[in-house]
Amino acid sequence: MSTSTTFSPCEISRGGVGDTPSLLTMIRQPMIRKLQNIRPRSTVAQKQVSLLAVICLLIGVFSVLSPHFLTLKNFQTILRNMPELGLLSVGMSIVMMTGGIDISAEAALGVAAILVGKSMLQGDPAWVSALIGPITGGILGTINGVVVAYFGVLPIIVTLGAMYVWRAVIFLLVGARWLSGLPRTFDPLVKTFVLGIPIPFIFFLLITMSLEFLFRKTPFGWHILAIGNSEYSARLAGVRTRRVTVGAYALLGVLVGIAAFLYVGKHRNVEMTVASGMSLEAIAAAVIGGTSILGGEGSVIGCVIGVFFIRLLQNGLVLLGIPSIWDYLVLGGLIIAAILSDLLYKRRRT
């Protein structure tokens, strides 16, 4: 008998409340602040609310169709599968808000994962192995950022090139011989639950929340968005656009490195094709979570919802016994739908 514990992701707080569409007409009384207490929902928040509605609907449908869906264990499984993609997606959303993109994130994850794995095999202290991830990721991210910001090459070109380079590095590092059966050094960290929640998920949530704070409460967030609106304008306004852009890519790199560490800790294995396809999934999660593919607006916390949505859908497909080939169709369709709706929304507003 499955437990009746229910989860209610619908209660996940609506993050990213910024600012708004609303009709605005110039009024001629000197009353500036009078109507300020009306803070209409932002477009990002609107997207997130509708996403939550879809999630609730999906949960409802899956619960009816599969007796195994609405169980504590199943939701634990979903949460377990979120952190690595989640971290990538959060970083990706920040880069996307600058109007950029990073295709190479998955390959950077591979490079970092191999170095973490090699360090574990060498018997380095756990903290050394753990730190190698974010350091490697940070370096690779910074390289991308510098090329994008200082050489003015299109991010998609830079990072596509970087992907091939990192993949080649992976090949050179492992020589097609996987790292298998790595020591169980990080098991206590990655396999433990606190109050029924897997620790890596808590870790991911804490990182996301601190980034949300960084994003909403410090000038960094404004600068990121301003660059995404128009890099030129942001520069005229006095934003150190290059430095901020490099910062965004470096931050993504660090998050990728943390994801690499979690990946290796969990799977104790690094294969040649490690994380392939993950960049696209991360972009999809970011867009679904409210980040615009065109840059200039978005939400960090929305990625949590976006990743949850993707994992929930994938979980439901297996539980409903739908042929696996549909996974690709559904995920592909989802990415197209999310991007199209983002673009159409823009068109309608302007």
Binding site: T218, P219, W222, L225, A226, N229, Y232, A237, G238, G296
Partner: peptide
């Protein structure tokens, strides 16, 4: 060309690049 960030609000635009911050535990908080 005004150099405004279209999707950002009035306050954000006025202070962009020259934000007023307060120091909270060593962090520059808007």
């Amino acid at each position: 060309e005004l150099a405004l960030a279209d999707k950002m609000n009035v306050v954000e635009n006025i202070f962009l690049g020259h934000e007023l911050v307060k120091n909270v535990l060593g962090l520059r908080i808007l």
